[in-house]
């Protein structure tokens, strides 16, 4: 009987202990999983990076620059033009209150080159090309096409991943530069042509307020975002079959969603980190 009582006390104690540590265990498991994924992504990126210079890569990189970069041009043109227009519009009405509309060019140019250009370009490419990358690689994974590459002695990291990461590193800065230029033109259209701000002042301020560091900092951010977006999207697609929450086509859908959401979050987080390092 005494033994039973001891055993019951022990059981109750264990349950109380579990109740107290339970939430920490959940957080701990999530943290371990997160660190695990981070480490795996880093190794994934490193291995893919090491295979960039292997033979027969150039043509695949060019093809990916076309898919990721060239085919994103139209959407970047549209978004950058209207972003610039909105920025010009808002800035004009804000600055005119202080009689400081002369600073309009500075405000539009620096905002676009330092922040909005790299960030919005990366988010737009993540939404357009990143999601396509995840879905394509995910489908190749679940339909055993990646296994087929293995059996044909074709390294899937070299064949599928390296060209996409390289192409992103090439495309992101170029599209960011395009975003900056078209955005500044958009700002000119809304503030000068539509609202009547002084054209010479706008152009002069754009020219004089920016130095080379602003441009290079923006392009460095674009490269960082390229590495993040391409790695996250490729990684999510490549390991679609390892998902524990779903399988098959549903897993591809969830991987694609995760890839885009995670890319956007990491773009904003890394933007802060990189800015604080560069400033």
């Amino acid at each position: 009987m005494a033994l039973d009582a001891d055993s019951q006390n022990g059981k109750a104690g264990w349950q109380v202990g579990r109740l107290l540590t339970g939430p920490f265990a959940v957080i701990g498991r999530a943290a371990i999983r997160w660190v695990d994924n981070l480490g795996a992504s880093a190794i994934f990126l490193l291995l893919a990076f090491l295979k960039i210079l292997r033979s027969k890569q150039l043509i695949k990189i060019v093809q990916q620059v076309y898919y990721i970069g060239a085919r994103s041009t139209m959407i970047i043109l549209l978004v950058s033009f209207f972003t610039g227009m909105v920025l010009g519009l808002q800035s004009y009405h804000a600055l005119v209150k202080f009689g400081a509309q002369g600073a309009l060019g500075t405000l539009v140019a620096l905002t676009l080159v330092r922040e909005l250009g790299p960030v919005l370009t990366a988010i737009m490419i993540a939404a357009r090309a990143g999601s396509a990358i995840t879905a394509e690689i995910g489908i190749q994974r679940i339909s055993e096409q990646i296994d087929a590459l293995d059996t044909m002695r074709i390294d899937p990291l070299r064949y599928l991943i390296s060209p996409r990461i390289t192409a992103s590193i090439i495309s992101f800065p170029l599209l960011t530069a395009l975003f900056d230029i078209v955005g500044i033109i958009g700002g000119y259209v809304s503030s000068v042509l539509l609202l009547g701000a002084n054209a010479s002042t706008y152009v002069y301020r754009v020219q004089t307020s920016m130095d080379l560091k602003d441009i290079t900092d923006g392009l460095i951010k674009a490269i960082v975002f390229a590495v993040i977006v391409s790695t996250v999207c490729c990684y999510q697609g490549y390991f679609t079959h390892m998902r524990t929450d779903s399988h098959g086509a549903k897993a591809v859908g969830l991987s694609t969603t995760s890839a885009v959401v995670l890319s956007c979050v990491l773009i904003l987080v890394s933007d802060y980190v990189v800015t604080s390092l560069l400033i």
Partner: peptide
């Protein structure tokens, strides 16, 4: 040879068959 063929659906039959020779 895979049960579900594992052919690359973005490539033609010719390109699929040529793939191992081109790459290896």
């Amino acid at each position: 040879m895979f049960q579900d063929n594992a052919l690359f659906d973005s490539m033609t039959v010719y390109e699929n068959i040529a793939l191992p020779l081109r790459e290896t």
